[in-house]
């Protein structure tokens, strides 16, 4: 039993991603979409907190939102996986429930 968490706000403007990471259980996945993709930037103020959960929680970033913002995938914390909309759908089906963090 696992949960897909989606986050859509930049972690530098509010604490949503932080709260999400604090409520994930091992085996869950976090998918960053829209402005939340900034949360996967390596070397950012958020990076340590993101990386601290990555051993047990899988991190995904929506490719289109990344490209729209001109972020190269090489800039992301290592282990973050880029997915398209088809990958988004796969993630939804692979998990028992989806929880949106608004």
């Amino acid at each position: 039993m696992s949960t897909l968490h989606t986050v859509n706000k930049s972690p530098f403007g509010n604490a949503t991603l932080s709260s999400c990471l604090g409520h994930c259980l091992p085996g869950d996945a976090v998918l960053l979409i829209e402005d939340a993709v900034y949360g996967a930037l390596d070397g950012s103020a958020m990076a340590d907190q993101v990386k601290s959960r990555m051993g047990e929680v899988a991190l995904y970033v929506l490719d289109g939102d990344l490209k729209a913002r001109g972020i190269d995938a090489g800039k992301l914390v290592s282990g973050a996986k880029c997915v398209g909309y088809d990958g988004f759908v796969d993630l939804v089906t692979e998990h028992d429930r989806t929880q949106s963090w608004l």
């Binding site: 039993m1 949960t3 604090g22 409520h23 259980l25 429930r97 989806t98 929880q99 608004l102």
Partner: peptide
């Protein structure tokens, strides 16, 4: 917080507001 995480993981449907 840990209990809340377990409560969330125990649901069929989670609706966020």
């Amino acid at each position: 917080r840990a209990e809340m995480a377990e409560i969330m993981a125990d649901q069929d449907v989670v609706l966020s507001f």
